[in-house]
Design a binder for these strands. Structure first.
Lengths: 188, 188
DNA sequence: ATCAGCGATGTCAGTTGCTGTCATCAATGT
DNA sequence: ACATTGATGACAGCAACTGACATCGCTGAT
């Protein structure tokens, strides 16, 4: 007989996800999440720094994916192309878990607090991309701007990807958005 | 004999600003702010929706400035140039209040919660810019991307502007950042 | 085989941001 | 004079989060 069932963190995450989906983020208390997971409120805060973080714990893996993607891009690739290549790889991963991504995104867009947290995650990704580019020898402000531009592209592409009418794939939409940005910034 | 001193809102703002500066955002309670302003905690929340909003109440005016700037740009201006013109106007306003801007920014960058709020304000500005561009007949995704790109430029320019070593003016840095973004996104 | 220490969890009390509700009272308009 | 309004106070309460300490199965060293 074990003292605790294993996988507390996973149970908390699952409980939170379903409760947020059922009754909304604001209308679910941490006590309820913990109860559904068979744990204590205090334990919830040992696994997640706050109530929102349950939805964003995957961001670390995403960041690693992006940083590696930039690092592994061919030396000949221009900064923006290295960044976009990394985004496309990440986009492919999202594409394979479309259901879960949509469910999660619906929860996030329904709540201002969660949108705040999402933005800070995106901003973190932008600086991580910029760092990765600097490691390739890209100078500032080009590195920072490329990171920001890449994340802006991802943001727009993602928005279009989750739209109900969308039929295209996320990597495709990323390439399209890059083309659109190039068109917009082309001097005349 | 008046029942209340006038200017409660201003006093609350001033009290909050100074306390945040003295002992940091997290280490000052709303009760303390209210006390310094000679008011009640409850009254604080009647003027500001939350503890952070004290630092961001100017964002509405900034947004108006940007939207008007875009609307008033010459018809011949390309979307990105209309957006940049608006940013430069706003940048000039910041330039005239550099002291206050620096003080405020120091408080914000010192705290994660405040950085979150700042990002959501920037995101709001990006969509406001995009809306203003659509009113000029710009289509999506060009409008959204231009809004995002413009805000990215502003963000980077602002970061460089507040750096201690900086000697240049914010509008100048905005123009520089635009040029850098164009260089970065130029296809080959 | 024993035992000390570790790690995940529980328990509990406390702080603080924030909200709902009702009362107060000067100023203002009729 | 009287009702209305608008800004504030008073007070109770919820829920997010934290700190401190207890519990107890497991594991590794002796």
């Amino acid at each position: 007989m074990v003292r605790w069932e294993p996988g507390s963190r996973g149970r908390l995450q699952e409980a939170a996800l379903s409760l947020y989906g059922e009754r909304g983020f604001e209308n679910t208390t941490v006590a309820e999440i913990a109860e559904r997971a068979g744990l204590t409120e205090r334990t919830f805060f040992r696994h997640f720094v706050d109530k929102r973080e349950v939805l964003f714990s995957g961001a670390a893996a995403l960041q690693e994916l992006l940083v590696n993607g930039v690092a592994n891009a061919p030396d000949s690739a221009a900064p923006i192309d290295a960044a976009i290549a990394a985004l496309e790889e990440a986009g492919a991963v999202f594409q394979e878990h479309r259901e879960g991504a949509l469910r999660r995104q619906a929860i996030i867009t329904a709540n201002a607090e969660l949108r705040e947290r999402e933005l800070i995650k995106l901003a973190t990704l932008a600086t991580a991309l910029a760092d990765a580019l600097r490691r390739r020898g890209v100078k500032d402000p080009a590195a920072s701007l490329t990171g920001e531009a890449a994340i802006a592209i991802f943001k727009i592409a993602f928005e279009r990807w989750v739209a109900p009418s969308n039929k295209r794939t996320l990597p495709q939409l990323i390439r399209d958005s890059l083309a659109a940005l190039k068109a917009v910034t082309a001097g005349r």
